[in-house]
Amino acid sequence: KTVHVNGVQYDFDNPEQAERFAKEMAKKAGLQIQFHGDQIKIE
């Protein structure tokens, strides 16, 4: 899974790890999470 945070890309082999990371980042920055198939976007 790939997580995009403000244009920066983070790759994870483990989907659960990717989602946990995305939730942490979104919570910290007060941003929205969008799921697009294999990609998670935080903007």
Rank of each mutant, 00 (worst) to 15 (best):
K1C: 15
K1F: 15
K1Q: 06
K1N: 09
K1H: 12
K1M: 14
T2K: 04
T2P: 02
T2G: 02
T2E: 01
T2W: 04
V3I: 06
V3K: 01
V3S: 01
V3D: 01
V3G: 01
H4W: 15
H4K: 06
V5Q: 01
V5D: 00
V5N: 01
N6E: 04
N6Q: 05
N6S: 03
G7C: 11
G7R: 03
G7Q: 02
G7V: 02
G7P: 01
G7L: 02
V8L: 06
Q9N: 04
Q9L: 10
Q9K: 12
Y10V: 02
Y10L: 01
Y10F: 09
Y10T: 00
Y10R: 01
Y10Q: 00
Y10N: 00
Y10M: 02
D11T: 14
D11M: 13
D11Y: 15
D11E: 11
D11V: 14
D11C: 15
F12T: 01
F12N: 00
F12L: 07
F12H: 00
D13H: 02
D13N: 05
D13P: 07
D13L: 06
D13G: 03
D13A: 07
D13W: 02
N14F: 04
N14T: 14
N14Y: 04
N14D: 13
N14Q: 03
P15M: 10
P15V: 11
P15E: 12
P15L: 11
E16R: 07
E16M: 08
E16S: 07
E16P: 00
E16T: 05
E16F: 09
E16K: 05
E16Y: 10
E16C: 14
E16D: 08
Q17Y: 03
Q17C: 15
Q17N: 05
Q17D: 13
Q17T: 07
A18G: 01
A18D: 00
A18F: 06
A18S: 01
E19R: 14
E19T: 10
E19M: 15
E19V: 14
R20V: 08
R20W: 11
R20L: 12
R20T: 10
F21R: 00
A22K: 04
A22H: 01
A22Q: 02
A22D: 00
A22I: 11
K23H: 09
K23V: 09
K23N: 07
K23T: 10
K23P: 00
K23Y: 14
E24N: 06
E24I: 10
E24C: 15
E24S: 08
E24H: 09
E24T: 07
M25V: 09
M25H: 02
M25E: 07
M25F: 09
M25I: 10
A26M: 07
A26K: 03
A26F: 07
K27Y: 13
K27Q: 12
K27A: 13
K27P: 01
K27H: 11
K27V: 09
K27F: 13
K27L: 14
K28M: 12
K28Y: 13
K28E: 08
A29R: 10
A29I: 11
A29E: 11
A29Q: 12
A29G: 07
A29Y: 15
G30C: 15
G30R: 03
L31R: 02
L31E: 03
L31W: 12
L31C: 15
L31H: 05
Q32W: 04
Q32L: 11
I33Q: 03
I33D: 03
I33E: 03
I33N: 04
I33Y: 06
I33L: 08
I33V: 10
Q34N: 10
Q34H: 11
Q34W: 12
Q34T: 13
Q34S: 13
Q34C: 15
Q34Y: 13
F35T: 07
F35I: 11
F35P: 04
F35K: 06
H36W: 14
H36R: 11
H36Q: 11
G37T: 07
G37R: 05
G37H: 07
G37M: 05
G37S: 07
D38C: 14
D38P: 07
D38N: 09
Q39G: 10
Q39W: 11
Q39R: 08
Q39D: 10
Q39Y: 12
Q39P: 07
Q39T: 13
I40E: 06
I40P: 05
I40Q: 05
I40A: 04
I40R: 01
I40C: 14
I40K: 03
K41L: 14
K41M: 13
K41I: 15
K41Q: 09
K41S: 10
I42V: 11
I42N: 05
I42D: 06
I42C: 14
E43I: 12
E43M: 11
E43L: 12
E43C: 15
